[in-house]
Design a protein around this nucleic acid. Structure first.
Length: 444
RNA sequence: GCUGUGGUGGUGUAGGGGUUAGCACGAGGGAUUGUGGUUCCCUCAGCCCGGGUUCAAUUCCCGGCCACGGCCCCA
């Protein structure tokens, strides 16, 4: 028995329908916010990702060579390919560009719930503009999308790595990497993001820095909560003579967000959010759900500089986010189960009218015109293909989820009619064998 | 990368060193050659893979693979 490769999944009819619905829900929000869908190849040049993330990523890539020896890889994410596409063919587009995308990505790593080797990402990018209003538009779209999916209980955390870097530099931490190590600021941001206070204290001691700086970081951490934390942070920064522009921008963003999107179930302005990636330069944000344990982050993004890698310095910085399609779906499924709902997304059960047409001991050609005619009208029609006995035909119709059965046997054929039975209550009527008559009976 | 638990028909399960490996749902056929979702009968189909211990392994041991969790990581 050949099995599917580790970390991959099959999606049956119900799951497929659910996935298409979720994608549609996200698309509606993206389109209404002026975003256009784009698509990039499933595989790319290996260089594209090593340029963005360093050579260390190769270990987690499905990398290979084609027959000409060209180094390629299945894409591990979608942001870099979209940036590449912009550099390659969208230089003449009106700016800023609002792009949305969805597709499979591949990472070779241990998989578990919410984490697969083949996984799906939905994302958007605003390219060619930056500032508090852009940030607000991006977060607002994320909020509107999650809101539209019906997801509950999620937490939005907004931070600002530019602000954080200012603070750390102001406290005397160097942004320069020591030989073979990471920069002290980067270490500090990682520790802050994890909430590792002891680690921070060690770092300050090792760097021979004033422990008063630690107190400031703790105070900023304590200031994290709702949007009022911005007001709390302001005097703290002022007291240390640190710049306030980033904080002002963040305040403007949060204010605009409140006007552009419904209030999230929980909002935290948390200046410790660091996202761990060094190409983020300004506002950063992420969304967590409680259902997924350690894999609870379902969305993340922010303002970043990547276009300069493609010679488009003038388009930096940009802003966007990636949404973990699989994780959002998992969280929705968990929530539906907890509430005893069988439908995870509305409408996933399929069409309510579905006609099973059974040619019973008559040539199938006698019913084919009405099958085609009904399909022309957009009715979902199943045709019995195995010449089953009448009783079995009904069992089959029930099994495929038909709402009605249209039986055409010798007697009907002679009269030019068929017998339409509504399975729900067993009501039967004879109808002429034309699409319009059957349709009328279905609606009546 | 570390670590915990588990793998019996398609699905869900019972059992257990020697068994006709049980049950339910499912699928196919029949009772019922023009009316299903009730009933009855028949059929289909299973001990994850490899090695070891043993007269004998689906059962015990080791390894692998797969699945489900918790850390590390997560562009």
């Amino acid at each position: 028995m050949v099995q599917r490769p580790r970390g991959t999944r099959d999606f049956g009819p119900l799951e497929s329908r659910r996935r298409r619905l979720l994608e549609q829900v996200l698309d509606v929000e993206a389109v209404c916010a002026g975003f256009d869908r784009v698509q990039t190849p499933i595989f790319e040049s290996l260089d594209l990702f090593t340029a963005k993330s360093g050579p260390g990523v190769i270990g987690q890539l499905y990398a290979f060579e084609d027959k000409g020896g060209r180094p390629l890889t299945l894409r591990p994410e979608l942001t870099a390919p979209v940036m590449r596409m912009i550099a390659e063919g969208m230089r003449a587009e009106a700016k800023p560009m609002r792009l949305a995308y969805h597709g499979a990505c591949f990472r070779y790593e241990e998989f578990k719930t919410g984490r697969y080797r083949e996984f799906y990402q939905y994302g958007i990018e605003v390219v060619g503009a930056d500032g508090p209003l852009v940030d607000a538009e991006v977060i607002a779209l994320a909020v509107r999308m999650l809101h539209a999916t019906g997801l509950k209980g999620w937490t939005l955390r907004i931070g600002h790595v530019g602000l954080l870097r200012d603070v750390l530099a102001g406290l005397g931490l160097s942004a320069e990497a020591s030989e073979g190590g990471e920069a002290p600021t980067a270490t500090a941001m990682r520790l802050l993001d994890k909430g590792d206070d002891a680690g921070l204290a060690d770092l300050f001691a090792a760097q021979r820095l004033d422990a008063a700086g630690l107190d400031l970081l703790r105070a900023l951490g304590d200031a994290s909560g709702g949007r009022e934390s911005i007001a709390t942070a302001r005097p703290l920064l002022e007291a240390h003579g640190l710049p306030l522009q980033a904080l002002d921008a963040l305040e403007e963003t949060v204010e605009a967000l409140g006007l552009l999107a419904p209030a999230p179930p929980s909002l935290e302005v948390d200046l410790r959010v660091a996202r761990g990636l060094d190409y983020y330069t300004g506002m950063v944000f992420e969304v967590h759900v409680p259902e997924l344990g350690g894999e609870g982050q379902v969305l993340g993004g922010g303002t970043y500089r990547l276009l300069h890698l493609f010679g488009l310095d003038d388009l930096d910085p940009s802003c966007g986010f990636g949404l973990g399609f699989d994780r959002v779906l998992l969280a929705l499924e968990h929530q539906a189960e907890a509430e005893g709902r069988s439908e995870v997304l509305p409408g996933e059960a399929g069409p309510k009218t579905r006609v099973a047409v059974v040619p019973f001991r008559v040539p199938a050609s006698a019913v084919l015109p009405v099958v085609a005619g009904l399909r022309d009208e957009g009715v979902v029609v199943d045709l019995e293909l195995r010449g089953r006995a009448i009783g079995k035909a009904f069992s089959w119709a029930d099994g495929v989820g038909a709402s009605h059965v249209l039986v055409v046997g010798p007697r009907d054929l002679e009269a030019g009619t068929g017998n339409l039975k509504r399975l729900k209550d067993g009501v039967q009527v004879d109808v002429a064998l034309t699409a319009s008559d059957v349709l009328a009976a279905l609606n009546g």
